[in-house]
């Protein structure tokens, strides 16, 4: 059974469109899985490379999007935005106390 990401209806395997709302089922899982992966990657990378904390912001935004819309990858997306918050706070602490600059770029 394939679950629709929009309305949550369980559809038979091989369905192209959701029987309840009509949304295409073929690639929705892949799109939000990729966003969840990107959120996790940015969350990890943000501890090391984080100019203007933009990587952390990207991890948080993508993680929230993935957490809301993803069906099977919510935990990965959640890890992404949590790591994004942690890396952003870490970067700001390092900047404030150690360099007073913009962080990791040498």
């Amino acid at each position: 059974m394939v679950k629709c990401g929009k309305c949550g209806t369980e559809n038979p395997d091989g369905s192209i469109r959701c029987v309840a709302c009509g949304r295409e089922l073929s690639d929705q899982g892949e799109d939000y899985k990729t966003i969840a992966i990107l959120a996790l990657v940015f969350g990890i990378v943000g501890f090391f490379v984080n100019p203007f904390c933009l990587i952390s912001v990207a991890a948080i935004v993508l993680g929230i999007i993935g957490n809301v819309y993803s069906v099977n990858n919510k935990s990965m997306a959640m890890a992404g935005w949590i790591l994004g918050i942690c890396s952003g706070v870490f970067q700001m602490v390092i900047d404030f106390f150690c360099t007073f600059g913009l962080g990791i770029f040498c």
Partner: peptide, 8 residues
């Protein structure tokens, strides 16, 4: 080197 070193 950190992963960001040399980025600038």
């Amino acid at each position: 080197y950190c992963p960001g070193c040399g980025g600038t």
